[in-house]
Simulated assay, not measured.
Amino acid sequence: MNVTLLAHTQLAIDMKNKIESENDFMSPDFDINTGDLIDEGVTDGQVVALAAIRQCYSRKTAIEVLETESEKYFGERGKEGERLFKQIVSSGHTSTLEHITFTFAVENVSRALLAQLTRHRHISFSVQSQRYVKLSSDSRSGGFDYVVPKTVIGSDKLESIHFGTQELFDEAMKSIQGYYNHLIKLGIPQEDARAVLPNAAATNLVMTLNLRTALEFYAKRKPGNGAQNEITQLAEAIKNEITAVETWTVKFFE
């Protein structure tokens, strides 16, 4: 599995320039002697969150909020922004965090994981198609890849006199590949031949979700919470990618 952050919420250039010209809290702060990063500065996501949250409780417009209240919440006079975000999450008013989005490229995950993802809401998918991508051994794909479950890898349990569990699993995948190849040679369309492909068949996708969905997804699929190993890996990778660019969210995933 490989998970890469492709894009995330950024302020419009004009708005970013305006806020940065009037405030210095968005600029990273470095140690003048060592050059080490001391403070990463306020992120675009935090600014968007402030606009959305305060819009719900203020007579001002979102633009007026950013123009007049940014210093109060993000400036040197306190950590009002941190308090505000903590209050929003603890009170359950997390619809205001839906305006912060993240887009990921997810590679080499099973169709079983894809089925589990569809049980969550507010996630957008663009998935590699088994209808249009030919998966026969003699095609450019070289056949279908597959994901071996953690419990199968390296198991010493003998399922037969000849095979360990992983060998048995691999043989099953080879057999399915053979049936798929034969159906294609018989002229069966790819969209119908794919019916024999297993849940283990690997796929790639682009997925977009907002911060509220990411927090809910992680709470349900994080390691140690009873979820299947593969999807816990995805949950952890998504969390790590998000917290790397929006560091203020770390405590909310925890």
Rank of each mutant, 00 (worst) to 15 (best):
residue 4 T to D: 12
residue 175 S to G: 05
residue 148 V to H: 01
residue 222 K to F: 09
residue 187 G to N: 00
residue 169 F to P: 02
residue 221 R to N: 14
residue 180 Y to L: 00
residue 9 T to H: 07
residue 78 G to F: 12
residue 68 T to V: 03
residue 214 A to P: 03
residue 147 V to G: 02
residue 132 Y to N: 02
residue 91 S to F: 09
residue 44 D to Y: 06
residue 218 Y to H: 15
residue 28 P to W: 05
residue 232 T to Y: 05
residue 217 F to R: 13
residue 164 G to L: 10
residue 110 S to N: 07
residue 148 V to D: 00
residue 91 S to N: 14
residue 177 Q to I: 00
residue 7 A to M: 07
residue 205 L to A: 05
residue 165 T to Q: 10
residue 121 R to T: 13
residue 9 T to Y: 09
residue 83 R to Y: 06
residue 66 L to A: 07
residue 124 S to K: 14
residue 251 K to R: 13
residue 89 V to K: 09
residue 180 Y to P: 00
residue 126 S to I: 13
residue 215 L to M: 14
residue 34 T to Y: 08
residue 224 G to Q: 02
residue 185 K to P: 00
residue 239 K to G: 11
residue 44 D to G: 05
residue 5 L to K: 08
residue 207 M to E: 07
residue 96 T to Y: 15
residue 207 M to W: 05
residue 91 S to R: 13
residue 136 S to W: 00
residue 171 E to N: 12
residue 107 E to N: 13
residue 246 E to L: 14
residue 166 Q to V: 07
residue 169 F to K: 01
residue 228 Q to C: 00
residue 97 L to S: 06
residue 244 A to Q: 14
residue 126 S to N: 15
residue 245 V to K: 12
residue 70 S to F: 09
residue 144 F to S: 01
residue 104 F to L: 11
residue 246 E to V: 03
residue 236 E to C: 02
residue 103 T to F: 07
residue 65 V to N: 15
residue 7 A to C: 06
residue 224 G to F: 03
residue 233 Q to I: 11
residue 117 L to N: 06
residue 23 N to S: 12
residue 117 L to E: 08
residue 145 D to S: 11
residue 197 L to C: 01
residue 119 R to M: 12
residue 59 R to Q: 08
residue 174 K to C: 02
residue 24 D to Q: 12
residue 130 Q to R: 01
residue 170 D to L: 01
residue 227 A to R: 05
residue 71 E to I: 11
residue 59 R to W: 00
residue 92 G to F: 09
residue 80 E to D: 14
residue 208 T to L: 10
residue 122 H to T: 14
residue 48 V to A: 10
residue 137 S to I: 02
residue 78 G to Q: 11
residue 189 P to Y: 00
residue 113 L to C: 13
residue 134 K to C: 06
residue 209 L to A: 14
residue 61 T to C: 11
residue 10 Q to N: 08
residue 151 T to C: 03
residue 84 L to G: 10
residue 249 T to K: 06
residue 93 H to R: 04
residue 114 L to Q: 07
residue 20 E to S: 14
residue 143 G to S: 08
residue 38 I to D: 05
residue 199 N to E: 01
residue 155 S to E: 03
residue 114 L to Y: 04
residue 242 I to L: 07
residue 238 I to Y: 08
residue 62 A to G: 01
residue 175 S to V: 08
residue 27 S to L: 10
residue 71 E to T: 12
residue 215 L to F: 09
residue 46 Q to K: 07
residue 19 I to S: 05
residue 242 I to N: 05
residue 179 Y to N: 00
residue 129 S to I: 03
residue 227 A to Y: 07
residue 230 E to F: 11
residue 59 R to S: 13
residue 140 R to F: 07
residue 210 N to R: 10
residue 158 L to K: 14
residue 43 T to A: 03
residue 247 T to S: 15
residue 152 V to I: 15
residue 93 H to E: 02
residue 7 A to G: 08
residue 202 A to C: 08
residue 93 H to L: 05
residue 192 D to F: 02
residue 167 E to T: 10
residue 19 I to R: 04
residue 166 Q to H: 04
residue 14 D to T: 12
residue 189 P to T: 00
residue 45 G to S: 09
residue 67 E to P: 01
residue 67 E to L: 06
residue 150 K to T: 09
residue 123 I to N: 07
residue 214 A to G: 08
residue 30 F to P: 02
residue 198 P to M: 04
residue 5 L to I: 11
residue 106 V to F: 07
residue 240 N to P: 02
residue 201 A to L: 10
